[in-house]
Simulated scan of single mutants.
Amino acid sequence: MNFPNTSIIISVYKDTEALGFILESLENQTRLPDEIIISEDGSSTEMSNFITTQKDRFPNLIHLTQADEGWRKNIAMNNAIKTASREYLIFIDGDCVPYSTFIQAHVENAQHGIVLCGKRFELGPKFTAKIKRNELKISDIEKKFFWYLPSMIADDARHPEDGLIFKSHSFISRQIHKRYVRHILGCNFSCYKDDFLKINGFDETYRLPAEGEDVDPSWRFRGMGIELKSCRNNANILHLYHPKRFSAVEGDVNKAIMEKHISENAFFCKNGIHKE
Score class of each variant (00 low, 15 high):
Phe3Lys: 04
Ser7Glu: 06
Ser7Val: 10
Asp15Trp: 06
Thr16Val: 09
Thr16Leu: 01
Gly20Met: 08
Phe21Asp: 07
Leu23Asp: 00
Asn28Ser: 13
Pro33Trp: 04
Glu35Pro: 05
Glu35Met: 06
Glu35Gly: 06
Ile38Cys: 02
Ser39His: 01
Glu40His: 03
Ser43His: 10
Ser48Trp: 08
Lys55Tyr: 04
Asp56Ile: 13
Phe58Glu: 02
Pro59His: 05
Leu64Tyr: 05
Ala67Met: 12
Gly70Arg: 07
Trp71Gln: 02
Lys73His: 15
Asn74Ile: 03
Asn74Leu: 15
Asn74Asp: 14
Ile75His: 06
Ala76Ser: 02
Met77Ala: 07
Met77Ser: 14
Asn78Val: 14
Thr83Cys: 15
Arg86Thr: 04
Tyr88Lys: 08
Ile90Lys: 03
Phe91Gly: 10
Asp93Ala: 07
Pro98Thr: 09
Tyr99Met: 03
Thr101Met: 05
Phe102Thr: 03
Ile103Ala: 09
Ala105Phe: 07
His106Cys: 09
His106Phe: 08
Ala110Thr: 08
Ala110Ile: 00
Gly113Gln: 01
Ile114Leu: 08
Val115Gly: 02
Val115Lys: 03
Cys117Thr: 12
Lys119Met: 11
Lys119Val: 05
Lys119Asn: 03
Gly124Ser: 07
Phe127Trp: 00
Ala129Pro: 08
Asn134Arg: 11
Ile138Pro: 00
Glu142Thr: 06
Glu142Lys: 02
Phe146Asp: 10
Tyr148Thr: 02
Ile153Met: 10
Ala154Ile: 09
Asp156Ala: 11
His159Ile: 05
Asp162Trp: 13
His169Tyr: 06
Arg174Tyr: 12
Gln175Asn: 04
Lys178Cys: 08
Arg179Phe: 11
Tyr180His: 14
Tyr180Ala: 00
Arg182Asn: 09
Leu185Trp: 02
Gly186Arg: 06
Asn188Val: 00
Phe189Asp: 01
Ser190Gly: 14
Tyr192Val: 01
Tyr192Thr: 13
Phe196Pro: 03
Gly201Thr: 08
Pro209Gly: 01
Ala210His: 00
Ala210Tyr: 02
Glu211Trp: 07
Gly212Tyr: 01
Gly212Trp: 00
Glu213His: 15
Trp219Gln: 00
Trp219Ile: 05
Leu228Gly: 03
Leu228Cys: 01
Asn233Trp: 03
Asn234Arg: 01
His242Ser: 13
Glu250Trp: 05
Asn254Tyr: 10
Lys255Leu: 14
Lys255Gln: 15
Lys255Asn: 15
Ala256Gly: 14
Ala256Phe: 11
Ile257Glu: 04
Met258Tyr: 07
Lys260Cys: 13
His261Gln: 14
His261Arg: 13
Ile262Met: 14
Ser263Met: 14
Glu264Phe: 12
Ala266Gln: 09
Phe268Leu: 12
Phe268Pro: 03
Cys269Ser: 04
Cys269Val: 13
Lys270Ala: 10
Asn271Ile: 02
Asn271Pro: 09
Ile273Asn: 02
Lys275Leu: 13
Glu276Trp: 08
Glu276Thr: 08
